[in-house]
Structures are given as C-alpha cells and as structure tokens.
Nucleic acid binder design. Structure first.
Length: 567
RNA sequence: GCUCCAGUAGCUCAGUUGGAUAGAGCAACAGCCUUCUAAGCUGUGGGUCGGGCGUUCGAAUCGCUUCUGGGGCACCA
C-alpha cells in the first residue's frame, strides 16, 4: 500500500511541473475517514498560496494532467480535495495472496536485523501477591516482546524482581515469630502477606522491631547464613507462584535477576561516579545532580547504604556489558517517571552514549477502584488469582449454557476467560488510568477478547465445512461487495499496524485493529454467504475467510491471547 | 508551591500526528436465527470535544490561560 502512496505523490509532483517537493506531497496524503472519499486523499489548500490559485482550480488542474498506472481506478475532486480510488480487483488479489502464502508468518519483518533489545517487565515484589497493577505491566511487556520478536529483534525478557530492600528485614522477623501458625508450603504468598501485615502492625506499636528489622537486613547483606536461607525460601516460594500465573498467561522470562542480583555490583557504580567527580555530598547523602528541573539522584543514603536507584544504575552497567543492547525498555507505572528520568541522566556517566540513548521508560496509568486507590490495608486490592478464576468460571458457564457437549471445555474456558482479561487491559491506551469494574472486566460481548475469538471460531467453522485448497487458482475479482472489499483492505493493513504499535509501544493499536477486523468480518459474514453453489465464488470467499482467520489468530497471539478453534 | 499526565455521548474509550458531516462498545429503544455458531448483525436517539483567548484557508489535535481529577517533588520501590 505504501508504494501506491509513493506513486500518487510522484504523479502529483509531475503534474505540477515539479513546483512542489515530493516529500511535501507525501506528507499531506491521507487516508480519508469516510470510505466514500476514496482510498487516498490529497488536500490542495496549502498549495493555494504557493501557486496563487484556488484549491479547487489546482485540484482540477492536477486531475486533468495527472498520469497514473492501473492500480488507481479513478481520481475525483471534491471541495479542494483530490480523492484517489484504488483498483479493487488488483488490491484484493494482492492482499489475499500475500496473506495466504505467508500464513502464520504474515506481518513478520526483519527490520530488527538481529539487534539486541531488553524488555524489563512484570517485576513484582517478592513475598507479595500478584495484583492488577502487575497484570497490566505483564501483559504490556509480553505483547511488546511478541511484536519485537516477529520483527527480527533478539529480545531478552527480564523480570526485575523486587527481592531486596529493608522490608525483608521486617518480613524475616515476622516469619521467625509467627511461622508455627502457618504452613508456608500452602498458599505461600498469602501466608507471607499475612505475616507481613501482622509484623507491620506490631512494629507500629513497638518501635524496637524496626531496629531488629534493620539488623536483619544488614545481616542479609552481609550474607548471614540463617537469614539468607530464609530470604531464599521467600524468593523461591514467590517465584514458584509467579511462574504458575505466567504459565496461565502464556508468558515467560529469560532472566529473573532482580534487585538482589545487583547488590554486589553497586560498588563499581559508586566508584565510577566518584572518579568522574559527579558524586557530591548533600545533606549527608551522596548524590548526582541531574539538572535544575529535577531533584538530584541519590546514590548513597546518609546512613551509608544504597537505594533502588543505585541498583538500577548497576543494572544499566551490567546490561550494557552483558547484552550489548540497542534498546533497554523498562515498563513501570507512571509514578516512576521521575525516577527513570533521573537514572537515565546519571547513566551518561556510566555507559557509552549509544546505550544511554537506548534507555526507554514506558509508563502506564494506575488501576484504581471507583472508591479510590486500591489498598492492602482496606483489603481492596484485586488479586489476579481471584480475577482469573472468576473469568474462567464465567466463560465456562456460558459455554455450558450454549453447548454442554463441546470437547475440552476447561481448556476453552481458560482461553476465553484469560483472553478476555488480557484484551481488556490492552485495549486501552497505556497513558490512561483504568477504573476497575468487575462487570466491565468480565464482559464477553462488544469490544472484547471473546468477541475477536468468536469471530475466528466462526471463520474456522466455515472452513471446516468445505474442502478449501490454497493451491487452487482463485478468481478474487468475484469479491466485489462493499463488505468484502472493506474487509480485504483492513486485512492488508496488518503489517503496518504491528509496526505502528511497536513504534509507539502501544499494543492497544493492535487490539483496536483486531476489533475492526472482527467487525468487518461479522458484517461480511451476515451479508455474504460463503457456502454457495457457485464454486468460483465459494472459493474466493473461502480465501477471504481463511485470510481473516490467519490475521486474527496472528494478531491475538501477538497480544498474548490464545485462540480456541471452537467455542 | 513547583512539575508531569488526563479531561471527547449517561458510562468505558477511539480519533490515522492540523483536514471533509467528531466515531465505536456498553446502557436505552426498534428490528434480524427452518439457511456457514445470535459471545453476532442492522437501525434510532444521545456531543458547548472541560471553559476562554489565540495561530491557521481549516483546530478535539498546535500555543497561551483557566477549571477539574490523578501522579511526582531526595534518603520507599
């Protein structure tokens, strides 16, 4: 499609005797909102001044003089716009043949050319259950990973676990006191959470517990065997639980090196910064100044210990050396925007410019409740385990109500329930806060994952009823209804949609696109019967159905959503 | 107080980077299943694009200003 835009631009320039540059024209060419206005449109208003003539006259002049190839069927002038209409039969066969021949590789490119990219995402805090915030983070990261992968990048997924810091001193103390009341091997994260809440309460009444906690963390840093053993148990138990969730979500990681991993790599960071003379004393702490409009970045606290910024800096240094990345993408909530601005500034003292330029922070809005912030204390946190359970159960109920004889109901219910959740959190642009609403989250009709999955299932259902051989010669000129042509054109956009979604780090672009495809397919499905007597028409429509199924399945897989074959 | 982000239909959101009559879903109402799965399709109603000023042939989109909501502002992550 892009090449056609080029051709149009060149032709316009020629018909204006090169009085305007091709890039200017290319810049202005747009795809009309209203399909009645053609496939491409060029507004002539800005030419009025340059050529000292009215937009309508200019448009008419271009229309008369322009020479186009057979890919364009007609050109029209409306209100100073030049509207170009593509030759539909040409587009249809090109698009459908490409999709069907490439099949599950449709949309793959090699623009990444093997470049190394790191995506850091999910990153929950050890010993705490997985909640909705982590969920949004995880599905965002996983889908970006999937998209980079098919664009030829070499991607490393890092789960930067929050497995270090003074809260472990407190947790260890709580565990020592209360462990006999619990069975840590069962429901381990909730046990740890419970202990954590209890010891926090206790510490509020008895300040001395905080001192013990500090002492515990110090012992942990020094490698005290007993303490280290406890910390390891917490970490192992947590990862095991997280992995169970990642498994359900169908995502994974190449590294679980979290904060603790960098605990012995921070000295070098401090040394480098000190050697470069940028580490200055400020109110007892050691900081790096990062410009006037930001507070300084604290690297060493006034009590001599390090802070999360120090660990993040150590991670940048380590990753530059280990992975030689061209991009290192961090996915976190928007409350960390300032923090990443600061450490990216400091990073210029640690790594080459090419690494520093590759540091990218992708932030997303909070998930809140109608009543306000989620809070552990008020018990208003929405845990992902519960939500997944609810979603799967609801999917199963609906399936049973519709067709209790369906095979493999549990697996299908899982695909639909989980798909609904993932889609729900990817369809909204990441900048927006999301107000959590259980009914809305568990909706399966309208702009939802199950709707897109359902579209796929209907397509497959048709294909299962015919012998459709991709090798037969198909006359796609027969596809000439409005529904067919619009669907084909939408399918043809897929590769560009993926690129755009990646460029903007915005899976929502792909999710929205899949809704559009599903809607156009549903219209086609309602208006154009596929299983007709006319063999040629049947074949052509089957080709369209098949191509649609390919695009939907591929698109959903990039979002991290599975497609049931029946539902 | 400073700073970043958001504000579009009753609700939840799109809006192709400044273009033509601002679009979807949900909710409401009215239709469509003896024909490829109705988790679907078609239609109706619903808008001072938070307000104001400006730039422009042309603004939901850019600038300034103001209101509302949210985040951040050094020893938490």
């Amino acid at each position: 499609m892009e090449d056609i835009k080029e051709i149009i631009a060149e032709s316009i320039v020629l018909s204006l005797d090169n009085k305007i540059s091709k890039n200017d024209v290319l810049d202005k060419i747009e795809i009309p909102k209203d399909k009645e206005h053609g496939d491409f449109s060029y507004p002539c208003f800005n030419l009025a001044k340059i050529l000292k003539n009215s937009p309508v006259n200019i448009a008419n002049t271009i229309k008369e003089k322009i020479v186009l190839n057979d890919k364009i069927s007609k050109v029209e002038v409306i209100n100073g716009y030049l509207n170009f209409y593509l030759n539909n039969t040409n587009v249809t066969s090109t698009v459908l043949n490409e999709i069907i021949s490439k099949n599950e590789k449709y949309g793959d490119t090699n623009i990444g050319n093997g470049e190394n990219i790191i995506v850091e995402y999910s990153s929950p805090n050890i010993a705490k259950p997985f909640h909705l915030g982590h969920f949004r983070n995880t599905v965002l990261g996983a889908s970006l990973y999937n998209m980079y992968k098919i664009c030829g990048y070499n991607v490393t997924r890092i789960n930067h676990l929050g497995d270090w810091g003074r809260q472990f001193g407190l947790l260890i103390e709580g565990y020592k006191r209360f462990k006999d009341e619990y069975d840590i091997t069962k429901d381990s994260l909730n046990v740890l959470l419970d202990i954590y809440i209890r010891i926090n309460k206790l510490a509020k009444e008895d300040e001395s517990i905080f001192d013990i906690a500090r002492e515990n963390f110090k012992k942990l840093e020094e490698g005290n065997e007993e303490i280290l053993k406890l910390w390891k148990i917490f970490r192992d138990v947590s990862i095991k639980e997280y992995k169970r969730i990642y498994d359900i979500l169908g995502c994974g990681f190449d590294s679980y090196n979290g904060e603790a991993f960098y605990s012995d790599k921070m000295d070098e960071v401090i040394q480098i910064l000190d050697k470069k003379g940028v580490l200055v004393d400020s109110q007892g702490a050691k900081v790096v100044n990062v410009g006037e409009n930001m507070p300084p970045c604290i690297v060493v606290k006034s009590n001599g210990s390090t802070i999360y910024a120090t660990r993040d800096l150590a991670a940048i240094l380590y990753r530059a050396r280990t992975y030689d990345f061209s991009k290192c993408i961090y996915i976190t909530g928007s409350e960390q925007i300032l923090h990443f601005k600061q450490i990216f500034e400091v990073a210029k003292y640690l790594v080459d410019e090419k690494y520093q330029k590759g540091l990218i922070h992708i932030s997303y809005g909070m998930i809140r409740l109608k009543t306000g912030k989620m809070s552990t204390r008020d018990g208003t946190i929405v845990y992902i385990n519960d939500l997944i359970e609810d979603a799967i159960k609801k999917a199963k109920d609906i399936i049973i109500a519709k067709d209790a004889n369906l095979e493999d109901i549990d697996n299908i219910a899982k695909q639909i329930g989980v798909g609904a959740l993932i889609f729900n959190y990817l369809k909204t642009t990441k900048v927006k806060d999301i107000i959590f609403d259980l009914d809305e989250t568990l909706r399966f009709d309208g702009e939802t994952g199950p709707y897109v999955q359902y579209t796929y299932v209907r397509a497959k259902s048709i294909l299962n009823k015919v012998k459709f051989d991709t090798k037969t010669k198909i006359d796609y000129n027969l596809l000439n209804t409005k529904q067919e042509i619009e669907l084909v054109k939408e399918l043809g956009k897929f590769p560009n949609i993926v690129l755009k979604a990646l460029e903007e780090y915005e899976p929502a672009i792909l999710a929205r696109y899949l809704i559009d495809v599903a809607t156009l397919f549903s219209r086609f499905y309602n208006e154009c019967p596929v299983l007709v007597d006319d063999e040629n028409l049947k074949n052509a429509r089957c080709g369209l159905v098949y191509a649609t199924s390919i695009v939907i399945k591929k698109g959903l897989s990039l979002l991290g959503i599975e497609c049931p074959e029946k539902m």
